[in-house]
């Protein structure tokens, strides 16, 4: 109990405050940057979108429309007043309306895309991390055998292939040649999203190729990373000592080697899970998959401040929280890590 209180007072509260500060600074930067970019004025961008698409906006009416839109978007005041209003609304949970999709609330746009991104990326990240870490651990420890060589060659071969090409290859093979999977989308046209077996089956079928493409790339990276870590640890004296003591290989691998390699892998996983909220724009483009990637891209391209804020807010909070959680977990994984001196 005494140790726990010391941990809370000496480490946890400070660490939590640092996380909150990171979030505050991150959000403030994201508030400022689009507003400081020359020409990134949402009202002008709205007019420009209309012009670019060929809609007729005669000369005389443009300035009038710009002023009316600025008023509508609530961008008339000074930067400071906008900043104060922003925090006031944010603390109430209001991210405001999207400018490019006005007046649709930012939270509505995010909530439409978020489940698809989180569902696909969390699953593929955890799956590829788990498989890559286990295979990499075994390969690094054994460092011989046919299957180790095969996995190594495949991982090294896949890694440099640009993701776009790999995704297209999968699409050509499984969707256009073999017709096993659909060419794109999140589920069959005409289905209504419900918790029915038909819908779930359709989501699995439509999500299979995007997931496979991400897993193939992910496993390779985690595999090579873990193999390198384990190879280094295997050369340490305490591993040789354990072997000479007659401990079983499986025990050495699990309790001595892999455990020590885990902090780095876990930190990587934590960060990757945090970055999930950035989406994967290429996956979304190749597989017509709905997600946060296209949302963020559109937001940046159209100077949609509120949407940029909303999407990055999730990412900032997620990364800050993920690193906090990983930091708190590490002492349980690796006893050498201690935040409070005993």
């Amino acid at each position: 109990m005494k140790n726990f209180v010391r941990f809370l007072s000496k480490y946890f509260i400070t660490r939590l405050l640092i996380s909150l500060l990171v979030i505050f600074i991150g959000v403030s930067i994201v508030f400022l940057i689009p507003r400081l970019v020359p020409g990134a004025n949402p009202a002008e961008m709205a007019i420009r979108r209309l012009q670019m698409s060929g809609a007729y906006l005669p000369a005389e009416s443009m300035e009038k429309m710009k002023q009316a839109l600025l008023k509508l978007y609530g961008l008339e005041g000074s930067l400071l007043s906008q900043y104060i209003t922003f925090w006031r609304e944010l603390l109430k949970g209001n991210l405001g309306p999207s400018f490019a999709s006005f007046p649709t609330p930012v939270i509505t746009l995010i909530s439409r895309s978020l489940p698809w991104t989180v569902g696909l990326l969390a699953l593929t990240a955890i799956l590829s991390w788990g498989v890559g870490t286990i295979l990499g651990g075994i390969a690094g420890y054994k460092n011989r055998g046919v299957w180790v060589r095969v996995v190594e060659i495949v991982s090294n071969a896949v890694r440099p292939v640009p993701y776009y090409i790999l995704a297209l290859l999968l699409l050509i093979l499984f969707a256009y040649v073999l017709h096993w999977f659909p060419t794109g989308g999140a589920y069959r046209i005409g289905l209504t999203p419900t918790l029915s077996w038909n819908f779930v089956k359709s989501v699995v079928k439509y999500g299979f190729l995007p997931a496979l493409s991400l897993i193939i790339v992910g496993i390779g990276a985690w595999f090579l990373n873990m193999r390198n870590l384990v190879s280094n640890i295997t050369g340490e004296y305490f591993v040789s000592f354990a072997r000479q003591m007659g401990l079983k290989d499986s025990i050495i691998l699990k309790s001595y080697v892999m455990r020590l390699a885990m902090p780095a892998q876990l930190t990587g996983l934590g960060l990757q899970l945090g970055f999930i909220f950035n989406g994967t724009i290429i996956t979304e483009i190749v597989f017509n998959y709905p997600g946060l990637g296209t949302l963020i891209y559109t937001a940046i391209m159209q100077s949609d401040y509120n949407l940029v804020m909303g999407t990055t807010l999730f990412s900032i909070v997620a990364v800050a929280l993920a690193t906090l959680i990983v930091d708190l977990l590490l002492p349980f994984i690796d006893p050498r890590i201690q935040y409070v001196p005993s």
């Binding site: 809609a55 005669p58 009316a68 839109l69 509508l72």
Partner: peptide, 10 residues
Amino acid sequence: PEMTWGAYMQ
């Protein structure tokens, strides 16, 4: 005037 062809009409 904030509508697409609003300013023109005004």
